[in-house]
């Protein structure tokens, strides 16, 4: 259990990369990029976890309660936004690419390029 969260993060990172390398469709590739990014969420939150801690929100818990690390959560929040915006921009590029080239297959695109 002590290693599982880290290993899962590493696995997601590599499996996302595998998807990117073997992708036959740029939309799929953008999806794989989103997968790759989720590895960072898992790693960050795993690092910030504290056994027996509760969420760092002092709405109805005493102020000296044992809580998990709020900093990694803030970082992950930022990361989520970054991921969504990058996805949006890349998908916009995919739409235009398809309009101009009629394909979203990297193999065909690379042949077009010569």
């Amino acid at each position: 259990m002590t290693l599982l969260p880290y290993l899962v993060a590493g696995w997601i990172f590599l499996v996302g990369l595998y998807g990117l390398v073997t992708s036959r469709n740029l939309i799929h590739a953008v999806g794989c990029l989103a997968v790759t990014q989720s590895s960072t969420y898992v790693l960050l939150l795993a690092i910030g976890y504290r056994d027996g801690g509760t969420a760092p929100v002092f709405a109805d818990i005493p102020t000296d309660a044992r809580v998990v690390d709020p900093v990694v959560q803030a970082l992950t929040l930022t990361d989520v936004v970054v991921g969504a915006t990058v996805t949006a921009l890349l998908l916009a590029l995919v739409i235009q690419l398809h309009k101009r080239h009629g394909t979203v297959d990297p193999d065909e695109l690379s042949e077009l390029k010569g």
Binding site: T2, G48, R50, D51, D69, V71, V72
Partner: peptide, 10 residues
């Protein structure tokens, strides 16, 4: 280890 108590910044 996962669940460590070492979170100085936190």
């Amino acid at each position: 280890d996962f669940g460590t108590n070492f979170h100085p910044y936190g």
